Amino acid sequence: MEDTLTITLTPELKAILDNLTDAEGIPPEKVVQAALQDYLFIRQFRALRSQLLKKAKTPYTDDDIFEVVS
Rank of each mutant, 00 (worst) to 15 (best):
E12K: 08
Q44F: 01
P27L: 09
P11I: 02
R46E: 14
T6V: 08
D64P: 02
Q33H: 03
L9C: 06
I65K: 11
A47G: 03
E2Q: 13
E2L: 10
I65D: 06
I7W: 02
V69L: 12
L9H: 05
E67S: 08
D3V: 12
D64C: 08
L5K: 07
A47V: 00
D64F: 08
D62V: 11
E67W: 01
K14P: 00
G25P: 00
P59F: 02
V68H: 12
D64N: 11
D63F: 13
L5W: 00
F66N: 11
E12D: 01
D64T: 06
K30F: 06
V32R: 02
L9D: 00
E2S: 14
F45M: 13
L17G: 04
S50V: 04
T21G: 00
Y60Q: 05
V68Y: 11
T4E: 03
V68C: 10
R46Q: 15
D63R: 14
I7R: 03
L48M: 09
V32Q: 01
Q37Y: 00
M1Q: 02
F45W: 12
L17S: 02
L5E: 06
L48Q: 05
D38W: 05
A15H: 05
E2I: 13
Y39F: 14
P59Q: 08
F45S: 05
T58D: 15
K54A: 15
T10V: 05
A56F: 07
E24G: 03
Y39V: 08
L40S: 03
L36P: 01
T8H: 13
